[in-house]
């Protein structure tokens, strides 16, 4: 479903020097997988995730999602391709002046759906995240966990084949974290959506991921299988993260 081929991304620092966030990295993620990207801050995991929907454009390499190389698309084609890739953010990034229902409707308005189709789809998505009774509320009236569930419903709305989740639980308490992870897992199982989740917590990897890549200084140090909640790790870095968890 997702193929990153030799992608490279560097940023200019304020002092004029260059910081390499992702270095010559290749990665394949299968359809229907929940794939984790784990590492310490600055390891390049968020950048790698943002390369998948081209929020960051790679300096070199190809980004192939659902059979299309996104780096070769025109601006208009890229916008269409992005409608097939939902995104969930650490800080939720909801529109504060729109109600919950209108937030979920946003990607559908963007995609040019009819009003009636939007209304029906919004109801469906809010049901999936059990927020049907909050449709008319504004984000400011919700708890963190509820906001993130709106974020998930919004990411789900346009029936994407991929959902990218950037530290979706890092702003939440442990119990809420668990319910959000369940929610992502549920969506993956019910709709077969491929989920890529960035985290710095091994607990997240253990509870929902099928596989995970450990990032270190912009490179993949190890790709780990997760079987029955136990992570098959070999590198010292991965083992230390497992111990800390």
């Amino acid at each position: 479903m997702i193929h990153l081929q030799a992608v490279h991304k560097r940023f200019q620092r304020p002092d004029g020097g260059w910081f390499t966030a992702v270095e010559d990295t290749s990665l394949s993620i299968g359809a229907g997988e929940i794939f984790g990207l784990i590492g310490f801050s600055g390891a390049g995991k968020s950048t790698l995730l943002r390369l998948i929907n081209l929020l960051e454009r790679p300096d070199a390499g190809a980004v192939i999602v659902d059979g299309r190389d996104l780096t070769s698309l025109s601006a208009r084609e890229l916008r269409r391709a992005r409608q097939n890739i939902g995104m969930v953010f650490q800080q939720f990034n909801l529109l504060t002046n729109r109600t919950v229902a209108d937030n979920v409707a946003f990607p559908l308005e963007v995609a040019g759906w009819s009003r009636a189709d939007i209304a029906a789809r919004v109801d469906e998505c809010l049901d999936v995240v059990s927020l049907g009774d909050r449709a008319r509320h504004y984000p400011a009236q919700l708890s963190g966990g509820q906001k993130q569930r709106v974020g998930i419903a919004r990411a789900l709305a346009s029936r994407p084949r991929v959902i990218l989740a950037d530290e979706p639980t890092s702003a939440l308490d442990p119990r809420t974290t668990q319910s959000i992870l369940e929610c992502l897992k549920n969506i993956n199982e019910r709709f077969g959506v491929t989920v890529v989740v960035v985290t710095h917590e091994m607990g997240v990897i253990r509870s929902i991921c099928h596989r995970a890549a450990l990032l270190d200084h912009g490179r993949i140090a190890e790709v780990m299988d997760v079987v029955d909640g136990s992570v098959d790790a070999r590198t010292d870095l991965a083992l230390s993260l497992l111990e800390a968890a």
């Binding site: 391709a81 890739i85 995104m87 529109l95 729109r98 946003f106 990607p107 963007v110």
Partner: peptide, 23 residues
């Protein structure tokens, strides 16, 4: 981040101006 979210959903510049920035 809010503008970025709209970008990630495939919003056009005009949609970002009208539906995100002005709203």
């Amino acid at each position: 981040g809010v503008i970025e979210a709209a970008e990630s959903m495939g919003a056009s510049p005009m949609q970002i101006i009208c539906k995100v920035l002005l709203n």
